[in-house]
Every structure is written in structure tokens, then in C-alpha cells.
């Protein structure tokens, strides 16, 4: 019984962590049609912001907010310098963002060194529940993932800004004709997606060793989640993270993490092949 609860909690924790990383990715990929391979580095920048700011004894909530803003600004600059020139060249977005990812990662190595840093969790007391004890910070991360996802959906589907953004995505010319400044929307959307990646990195930082390679480990599972879930709607991220994260945790508990990763990645490829639109996608080509 305890074992089941523990596996269940671990699975939920992994799924929600993945969701946290995916939500920014799916906004940029699904809504802007930009394959952002630098997403892992935005995540990384968020984590390093935490390491840097914790030296000044700021409250953790403020640090998270600053991490979001800092990475959103980085995203804004990158959008203005690079991405806006290649919106119409879908494949080139992969290459350009890969170059950005390489440069950002190396910049972090130049500034902070290649070694790993430690971010301190603001609280870490284990909590007893359902007959087991579980790290309270992990529970906090899970709660934050749900909160951030809910907030993102609220902004996208219940506010005027979100409506405008979805309008631009659905029909750019029509939105422009109705007086929407589409450039401004592009900028905001990209910055928002980047900021979410930074926030995810900041929240995850105390749970991981903060080193320049930390973003890469999330990149492949996150992209597979987005593709499996489908890019047509941000809802796909929920499905994708659930499927990839859930199956990964369960297989890892039964066999080993390595088997889990190999098996889940392979199955994800098959799923993407059979349903290129993702499990939430419409049947269209």
C-alpha cells in the first residue's frame, strides 16, 4: 500500500514537473509554430537566477517572480533579434534556436563555471501522509505546476489578451485587419513562453543540481510530450505530460529508470508516427 502511494506520488511529481516544462514549450511551439530548442536553456537561466539571488536573502516568492521576468526579457530580446526573422521558415527555427541554446549554455559556463551549484529549498521538512513521508518541497512543486498551468489556461482562454493571442494564431491577416498589433502579440507570446520556462527552472532548482547540462535532460521528454499530446492546443501538453511522465514513472518503478526512458521514448516515437497530430489533434495533414 505504501509502495503504491509512493509510486503514485512520484509519478504525479514527474508528470507535473514535465507539465511545468511543457507548458511554455507548447505555447511557443503550438501557438507560434516555432520549435524552440533553447527552451532547456531558458529553464537553465531560471535556475541560475535562483542561485544568484539567494545570496541576497530575498524571499523565495520574489526570487521566482524575478526569474520569470528575467527569462521573459531574455526571450523578448531573442525574439526581436532572431526569431522574428524566421517565423516563415519553420525548419530554420529549430536550427537557430539550437544555436542560441549552444551560445546561452556556453555563456552560463563562462559566467558561472562548468561545475554544479546548489540552490537551497526554502523549506524541506518531510510531511507525513497516507502512511508515508514525502518531501514538502516536492509537494510545493506539484502545487505550483497545477497553479501555473491553471493560470496559463485562464490567461489564454478567459482574458482579452489571451483572446487576442489566439486570434492572431488562428488568422494573422484577419487579426491585423481588425487592428491587432500582431508584432506586439508575437513578442508577448514568445516572452511569456520563455518566462514560463524560466519559472519552471527556478521552481525546480532546489531539487536538482544546478549545472549547465540540466536543461538538456528535460528537452527530449518535453518535446516528445508536446508531440504526443498534440500541438494544436495547449491542452495537448496536459495529455502528453501525463502519458510520457506517467508511463515513465511506472516502468521505472517496475524495471529501471534506464529501461523506462528507452521504452517510453521508443513508444512515443511510434505514437507520434501513428498520430502526427498528437492524441488530442484532429485528423488532418
Amino acid at each position: 500500500m505504501e509502495m503504491t502511494v509512493l509510486i503514485g506520488l512520484d509519478a504525479a511529481s514527474y508528470i507535473l514537473t514535465l507539465l511545468l516544462v511543457c507548458i511554455g514549450l507548447v505555447i511557443i511551439f503550438g501557438m507560434m509554430n516555432v520549435v524552440n530548442l533553447a527552451h532547456g536553456e531558458f529553464f537553465l537561466l531560471g535556475a541560475y537566477t535562483v542561485v544568484l539571488l539567494q545570496q541576497y536573502a530575498l524571499p523565495f516568492a520574489v526570487i521566482l517572480l524575478i526569474a520569470f521576468v528575467v527569462v521573459a526579457l531574455v526571450g523578448l530580446v531573442i525574439e526581436e533579434l532572431v526569431i522574428r526573422r524566421i517565423y516563415h521558415r519553420f525548419l530554420d527555427t529549430i536550427l537557430a534556436t539550437w544555436g542560441i541554446s549552444l551560445a546561452l549554455k556556453q555563456l552560463v559556463i563562462v559566467l558561472f563555471g562548468p561545475g554544479s551549484q546548489q540552490a537551497v529549498a526554502p523549506f524541506a521538512e518531510p510531511v507525513a501522509m497516507f502512511g508515508i513521508t514525502y518531501s514538502s518541497y516536492r509537494l510545493f512543486v506539484m502545487g505550483m505546476a497545477i497553479l501555473i498551468t491553471a493560470a496559463t489556461f485562464f490567461i489564454l482562454f478567459r482574458t482579452r489578451v489571451g483572446l487576442t493571442a489566439r486570434g492572431v494564431i488562428a488568422n494573422r491577416q484577419m487579426a491585423a485587419c481588425l487592428g491587432v498589433n500582431t508584432r506586439r502579440v508575437d513578442r508577448l507570446t514568445f516572452a511569456f513562453g520563455s518566462g514560463l520556462a524560466g519559472l519552471a527552472g527556478a521552481i525546480m532548482a532546489p531539487l536538482m543540481s544546478v549545472d549547465p547540462q540540466m536543461g538538456v535532460g528535460f528537452l527530449v521528454p518535453a518535446f516528445l510530450s508536446v508531440l504526443v499530446g498534440g500541438t494544436a492546443s495547449p491542452l495537448g501538453a496536459l495529455w502528453g505530460a501525463g502519458i510520457i511522465g506517467g508511463s515513465n514513472s511506472v516502468v521505472a518503478a517496475i524495471w529501471t529508470p534506464v529501461v523506462a526512458q528507452i521504452a517510453v521514448f521508443s513508444i512515443a516515437i511510434v505514437v507520434i508516427r501513428l498520430w502526427p497530430g498528437g492524441v488530442t489533434g484532429k485528423r488532418k495533414r
Partner: peptide, 28 residues
């Protein structure tokens, strides 16, 4: 053949799938 036959993969999807295949091979 597996990726292109029928309603095949194209563009970025092909890129991400081949990337994942390389990662799987490395892990193996």
C-alpha cells in the same frame, strides 16, 4: 520507410523523432 510511408512525418517532427532515436541509441 516506417516514418515516411502513408501519412508520414515531415519537417520538425522528423527532426525531433530522429533526435530521440539518437538519444535512445546512446542510452542503449
Amino acid at each position: 520507410l516506417a516514418l515516411f510511408k502513408g501519412r508520414g512525418l515531415y519537417g520538425a517532427y522528423f527532426g525531433i523523432v530522429t533526435l530521440s532515436a539518437a538519444v535512445i541509441a546512446e542510452r542503449l
